[in-house]
Each structure stands twice: as C-alpha cells, then as structure tokens.
Amino acid sequence: MSEQTGKQLSKEEKDARFEAELLPVLDPLYNFAYRLTLDEDDANDLVQETYLKAYRFFDYFEQGTNAKAWLFRILKNSFINEFRKKSKQPAKVDYSEVEGYYNTDDVEGDSGVATTTDMRSESVQDLIGDEVASALNTLPVDFRTVIILCDLEGFTYEEMAKILDIPIGTVRSRLHRARNSLKEKLEKYAKTMGYNS
C-alpha cells in the first residue's frame, strides 16, 4: 500500500536483486524451517511464505547487509505467528520412538556393544547424526532454535539477538540452557559409543 513512497526499483531490477541476494539463502533457510517444524511440507510452506514476504518488503532491505539474517528473522516470525498456532505442540516428534531407544539402553554400559565398532566408519557417522538429530528434536523449540542458529549456521550472538528479537544476554543464557539439556540427552548415548569420560 505504502510502497509508492519507498525508493523505487524497476521490476526487473528488483527481481534480479532478489534472485541474486536472497535466493542463495534457500538451502540454509529450508534447513532452518525443517528443524523448526520437523515436517517437510510445513518447511516448504514456511519457506515460500518467507520469500513472498521478503519480496513484498524488499524495498526495506538494505543492499549488502546481512540477507541471511534478515530472511532467518522473517522466517522465525512467520513460524511464531502461524505455525505454532497450527500445531499447538512445540514440535511433532515421535516421542515413543525416542523413548523406546533410551529404554532399551538401560541395560547399562558394560555390554561393550560399541567397543568393537570403528568410530570412523560411515554407518557409525550416520548413526551419530541420527542420534544427535533425535536428541535435538526433543528439545523445546526455543532451545532447538538457538543451537541451530549458533552451531549449524554459525551466526554470532549479535546476529542471533537480532533474528530472535531478544537481548544478547538472553541469547547467551538460552544457549547455555539449551546445551545443558542437549548434553543430558546425549549423555547416555555417548556412553554406549565410548565417548565416556
């Protein structure tokens, strides 16, 4: 509505800049959406919605500034506004599967299951990845978010504060609590894999 007042780009210029600056973020953005929604269709919708909003407000985006952080922020807000309502639950996680795994693990670590396994083999690496993913998925979405932003996407605390609209101090304490919680969840698993200290 008020777009006439913004600095005007021709449609061609706008489209070209949009493609050059924002579309390269598609991969990390989709991954972030997936880690938030834990559903491929929802991630798809969320990313589409994010890009539509970004296009609509593209005149407000300053060229050369952090496009990735800007898009992550839009996506995070869309997620809070719409997807959270939709799925009352913080995340669709198959808890029974996770529980099942941990329960069978109660046998105590003296069975030495993992000691003969070559930690470098591809299947073991995959296994670790799966385990990390399921532990992460059981965290509340706020915790999951800071871990993804920091450890997977490499955002700085300052960027995270902007994306999430919270003070840096809150970023720090949330990250701290998120990691403690993740650590707890992974501890049992770590023991069976010989990461015991």
Binding site: E19, L23, L26, D27, Y30, N31, Y34, E40, A43, N44, V47, Q48, Y51, L52, Q125, D126, I128, G129, D130, V132, A133, L136, I147, I148, D151, L152, G154, L186
Partner: peptide
C-alpha cells in the same frame, strides 16, 4: 556433534521455481 554430524536436509528441487 551438531556442526559435524547433523545431516542437512535436501531442498526440494522445485522449491526455487515455485517461489519465483
């Protein structure tokens, strides 16, 4: 463990086209 082992999901091929 997160940065090195968490698998990235693959973006559906059609997504960029759909967005455009």
């Amino acid at each position: 463990l997160i940065s090195g082992h968490l698998k990235r999901v693959i973006v559906p091929e059609s997504l960029a086209q759909t967005i455009k």
